[in-house]
Design a binder for these strands. Structure first.
Length: 657
DNA sequence: CTAGGGTTAG
């Protein structure tokens, strides 16, 4: 490197050091002086444009004014011979930084070089395209290779699996095995991921067999991938057996199983494994906590969720978006909008999902204005709201009857070249329908540019029920039956509408059709979390150990709220001709039982939290308002649609839901 | 040169 010091462009010793990567591209036996002379001239020319005189590793992808890569430009203009390491470094850098354009430039240069037939470099190029999500180029390059080794196949298989093209990945895997190439742990990892992605357990089992045959069954990577594969193929018990038999486990193996239980709604299993994982000396990661929070959110297990949150802080896992978003969602779904906001504000870095999750939380809690403000803040910050953001803000408007505002956002979205999906139309029907603008909603459906689905008519039907419109409701219900005959919801809604008009004969007829067609109604239930256990109630429940106390409690409450003006609204009970019996049935709705239970088993004065798997009935909603005033406690009720915060005789939804 | 696990909406 003696000649390097003579280079005019090397202005300081630190520059010399940083230029080493470039210098190393010079042919070993070239005379430094002449090379450097030519080179400096070129560089100075470039320098007058943009170049500040430094190329080091982090500047490797620096562009020259003509749009090419500076390093390659220098080499061309100086007629230098680059070595293989340059292409290696460039491809790798493009891969790491997902720079497709720069990768293409490098590839073009590489093809013209004397290394163009080096399999290793070709493999790296395939990988570069795959990581940059350009599978077509990766494939093309792969097909053009005169010689392909096991790594070439693995790179492409991995590329397909990471780009969710599982069928192509598997086909290539089969081809590779049939050709007699021996897969390694990398190949098996990606092939298994693909089998899991396609939920093809037959394929997965086949790969599993080949893993054993080639002796990879004890590899941690392969083992974790196997656990994940079986879990995704709905063979979670087999996944567990396999996990238990693993010779070597790491965090990923644990995470795969914890996540699987969380997906299946087996929250308690996730938590149990989480505890075992820690006891076994494994450090939980973002992935682990993310799964745990998701499990707690869907189970309504807030106490455990909070405990896990504390634990995460103790362990020192940073609140990055991926885990933070799930945590935010958990607080939102668990009824704590304050908790959700706190997480949102503390996120180290927010991504689009963070914003959308916060919007969702506001919408679910009926905080429309906050949702709108947040959405506007997002736009002010120059963040591009996506389809889901719009859906969230429209839903938020819908929850408090901000009809025009919601329609405004629908139009804005249309103008912003975002694709209006069917869910957006449903949201608008919901918006109009809840506000009682049924005809407008119907007209909106008829003018839709895409074919209305069952969900669209269902939204209208729901609105017809709330606003007791039998004629339009009947029409909407017919459309739903046509499009989605196996769902119980519309039948129930329709019979409810008939019943609320006193047409019990019609209501009974719908019930009969339902029974004949084998449509099953999911039983309504409510649940309450006390400490770490969840207590579930269904209507007319007489199985709970405290059933007598609960019944007595509710009778007491009922007497008191009657004095305050509560009157049973029996239009929600359908099948009992006798008025008195109808009233009694109503008193045994699952949410009322859950409320009585919750009041009995939680500290005086504190708030109680109840969750329900369908929307709250009108009578219960009314009764809850009275009870909140009577006992002087806040009652938080989550139904499938939103949160109701009952406080001092009124509800946060302002009776709009 | 290559690998496995996680989030929002409906």
């Amino acid at each position: 490197m003696k000649g390097a010091a003579q280079l005019p462009i090397f202005r300081s010793t630190s520059c010399i050091r940083r230029f080493k990567s470039l210098i190393s591209f010079f042919p070993r036996n070239s005379r430094s002086a002449s090379v450097s002379f030519q080179c400096s001239e070129t560089v100075e020319t470039i320098e007058s444009g943009q170049f500040n005189g430094v190329i080091d590793d982090k500047d490797l992808l620096r562009k020259s004014p003509n749009g090419n890569l500076l390093v390659l430009d220098l080499i061309d203009r100086c007629a230098l011979q680059p070595d293989a390491k340059l292409y290696f470094d460039l491809f790798k850098k493009c891969t790491d930084q997902r720079k497709l354009k720069e990768g293409r430039i490098t590839h073009a240069h590489f093809v013209a070089s004397s290394f163009r037939n080096y399999v290793v470099l070709q493999n790296i190029a395939v990988n570069m395209y795959a990581k940059c999500c350009d599978m077509e180029s990766a494939r093309k390059l792969f097909d053009e290779m005169t010689e392909r080794d096991m790594v070439s196949y693995t790179m492409l298989i991995t590329g397909y699996s990471q780009n969710s093209e599982f069928d192509k990945a598997l086909r290539l895997y089969v081809e590779m095995v049939e050709m007699g190439l021996k897969p390694n742990e990398f190949t098996f990892g990606s092939a298994l991921k693909s089998a899991g992605g396609m939920q093809s357990d037959s394929m997965g089992r086949g790969i599993h067999g080949v893993c054993i045959k080639f002796g990879f069954e004890d590899n941690v990577y392969v083992g974790s991938a196997l656990v994940d594969m079986y879990a995704r193929c709905s063979k979670i018990d087999e996944a567990k057996v396999l996990f238990d038999q693993l010779k070597v486990r790491n965090e990923v193996s644990w995470n795969a199983l914890i996540a699987a239980y969380a997906r299946e709604g087996e929250g308690p299993c996730s938590l149990k494994l989480f505890v075992e994982m820690k006891r076994g000396g494994f450090r939980p990661t973002h992935f682990t906590y993310s799964s745990i929070f998701a499990a707690c959110a869907s189970n309504g297990a807030m106490e455990q969720g909070k405990w896990a949150h504390t634990d995460m802080i103790k362990i020192g896992v940073e609140l990055v978006a991926f885990v933070g978003n799930t945590l935010l969602d958990m607080y939102g779904k668990g009824g704590s909008i304050e908790g959700a906001k706190k997480v949102f504000d503390r996120l180290v870095k927010k991504d689009i999902v963070s914003w959308n999750s916060m919007l969702t939380a506001y919408a679910q809690h009926g905080h429309s204005q906050e949702a709108i403000d947040l959405f506007e803040e997002m736009r002010d910050l120059g963040l591009e709201p996506n389809e889901i953001s719009y859906l969230c803000v429209i839903n938020a408007c819908s929850h408090t009857g901000l009809v025009e505002k919601g329609l405004y956002y629908f139009d804005v979205m249309n103008e912003n070249k975002l694709v209006l999906q069917i869910t957006h139309y449903v949201a608008i029907i919901d918006l109009l329908g809840r506000a009682g603008e049924l005809e407008r909603a119907e007209r909106f459906i008829l003018r839709m540019p895409i074919e209305p689905t069952a969900a669209v008519w269902k939204a209208l039907l729901g609105a017809c029920r709330v606003h007791k419109n039998m004629l339009l409701g009947g029409y909407a219900a017919e459309r739903v039956f046509e499009l989605d005959p196996y769902e119980s919801g519309p039948h129930m809604l329709l019979s409810n509408i008939y019943a609320s008009h006193g047409r019990r004969d019609e209501a009974a007829r719908v019930r009969k059709i339902m029974a004949q067609s084998g449509v099953k109604k999911e039983p309504a239930c409510s649940w309450v979390e006390i400490g770490s256990s969840v207590h579930l109630f269904v209507a007319n429940d007489d199985t709970h150990p405290q059933r007598e106390k609960i019944r007595v409690m509710w009778e007491k409450l009922r007497e008191e709220i009657k004095k305050m003006g509560y009157e049973a609204d029996t239009s929600h009970v359908l099948w009992y001709a006798d008025q008195r019996e109808r009233e009694e049935r109503l008193q045994l709705h699952s949410e009322k039982l859950a409320l009585a239970f919750a009041l009995l088993n939680t500290p005086e004065g504190g708030s109680v939290s109840i969750k329900k798997n369908i929307r709250v009935c009108g009578d219960c909603h009314n009764a809850f308002k009275f009870v909140s005033k009577l006992v002087g406690r806040e009652i938080i009720l989550r139904d499938t649609n939103r949160f109701h915060h009952f406080r001092n005789g009124s509800c946060s939804c302002r009776d709009y839901w």
